[in-house]
Nucleic acid binder design. Structure first.
Lengths: 196, 196, 196, 196
DNA sequence: TATGAATGAGATTTCATTCAT
DNA sequence: GATGAATGAAATCTCATTCAT
């Protein structure tokens, strides 16, 4: 399995750095190779083509990202706690790796439609976690019944994604982790007064 | 004023069509010129360069988009009605112009950082409308006080944007306008039971 | 005769200014038209094409230049006096019109072979003046017999031209007219000691 | 060192040929690549851009040209002999490479000011040789004292350059080498009778 | 005469990918 | 497995010239 060879990881990590520092469109294969300390041609022993580097990068990093979220949310009891943990872990992980945050929120979005379609494949696992939590919330009579799962998913993911993107675009000048609770409240209670 | 000359509009509209049909990266200036029925060089009598076509396209179309939303929301009384109208008008307008929806939700996001920065400028006006509605809601005691306006903005815009993007990626196979009310409910009440 | 209409001269003079200020390759027809205060299309009522502007410019200005040299040298007695006057008048006239000096010494040399061939046509009249003076000098027993007229011509013209070009490239920071006498001496006596 | 790789020389030589045959403005990079037997992109492994090919060409060829002149003149005793050898070697070398003669005398002069400035840098070494010979001639009491070195340089270089240019423009239909002695006499003695 | 909007041909350079060593 | 020199396709923009008004 190529994925376990050291050069595979070297190249992925080099790609994250190079893209974060130079931007998507200035990240030539040769730059990635140089940063990874291998020859240009070597890249093609581990990846089919340039797109494959990016897809693998996303699968790898997002795989870990989602796995962590799965673990953390599973360790909580109620749907509300799980959702809070999801928001926190989402923010926490991207806070912890600034390069990765730039790459996933800004640079990789410049990729073409096909690449984005493959990226969406990876995200399905994340969306499944959301769906699961919401379902549990409904069963616990915490969340409303009869909500369209797709819309719920889009609200939750859209809110988190937009929040992180704004934070990255503001060059990460504030602490996004501190906002997890308020975001969670917004998702659970919306805009309205609890009583209204 | 060049913006009022007929060729200016011709070129903008051609650009929307070409980009929607071919994708951002396969939309050469020559293709746009051909679709607009002008010579390649004519493009440069109306636009500084290729990027200027895209920025102008976004400013033009989004300008109208936002104006419509301003008008429609202003014609409503309460913040809740205004917010519903905002969601409806947002969905309605993009439903009405499939090409434009593809271009704004998918293709223009592939542009580089500078272009996206200019796009964000245009969006500020939209975010101001959201802020205004939320403020009114607070004054009317409909919405909670002390919410972080930035987070609220990100929830609303993030949710709408994610919803539309998903609809476009699903090739617009369902009626998004019909979902306006449920999205509105999600934004106002969140996930939780009204009573909880 | 178009050459006597005011716009003809306007355009020629505009061309000299534009080329001197912007350089040959940045002197578009539209710039010349603007400086001349006419429409782009009007240029083509007076000149066949862009090259024709440049050829006409050279013919016009060099025509006057050579005429002056003919007059001044004719007013002298001996070949030596005539040659000195030729050098002086050559330097004097280019000193008097810095724009023209830049255009003839630097910018017009960037033109293509055909244009330069036409420019050489114009210069033939100048070379004839040189030939005439040298012949007279020989008859007066001032100059050596049996010199190859072509080589003599090339020495005189080459020396003057190189001298003026250097002066222009040094941004005309010294007085070239003051060097006329020494250049004349060099041409007449060469490098060697008069006695040697 | 790229300059010693065979492709470097191949490309330079191809450029000389292509420019001599097609003229400066019709010498596209692709034509040079084809003549050199390499792909277009290969050019850019050896040269920064098109201008860099031309500058390198001039530096390379003129470097050799001047070196030969330095060697040959150094091998002579008196300033007069050295000057004669300089003229001879100048003519000889350009006679020996017709393509190079066309390129340096006609085509490269069409380049823009920046390129010409770099070309002038290279020529400084040649002018230094001239200065040196003249100084020696003065010390040997062969040449006059108190001549302005700049003017002397301009006479010698201007004469040689004009002579070669005329020969090239006459399509090299006569033997320029045979004129070396007479040109030398003109430079040393000028126009006047030795006795006068 | 005069205008100026429109035309459209044409060339440099980049960079993902290959393949001989 | 590893290298890196070589490949070659592809697209923006300029500007001299035209021609309908």
């Amino acid at each position: 399995m190529k994925k376990n060879k050291p050069k595979y990881k070297q190249i992925i990590d080099a790609a994250v750095e190079v893209i974060a520092e130079n931007g998507y469109h200035s990240s030539q294969v040769s730059k990635i190779a140089k940063k990874a300390g291998v020859a240009d041609g070597t890249i093609y022993l581990y990846f089919k083509n340039k797109e494959d580097i990016l897809v693998s990068l996303f699968q790898d990093k997002m795989g870990q990202f989602i796995e962590k979220i799965e673990q953390e949310t599973n360790a909580r009891q109620t749907a509300e706690e799980k959702l809070l943990k999801l928001v926190e872990t989402h923010f926490e992980q991207l806070s912890a790796d600034h390069h990765l945050a730039i790459v996933t929120q800004l640079e990789l979005r410049q990729s073409n439609k096909e690449l984005r379609q493959k990226i969406n494949e990876v995200l399905k696992r994340y969306l499944a976690v959301i769906d699961q939590i919401v379902e549990e919330g409904v069963e616990e009579n915490l969340f409303r019944r009869n909500m369209d799962p797709r819309l719920v998913r889009q609200m939750i993911f859209g809110t988190l994604d937009e929040t992180v993107t704004n934070w990255v675009m503001k060059e990460q000048r504030y602490n996004i982790f501190e906002q997890a609770e308020e975001v969670h409240t917004l998702l659970v209670h919306g805009l309205s007064e609890p009583s209204s």
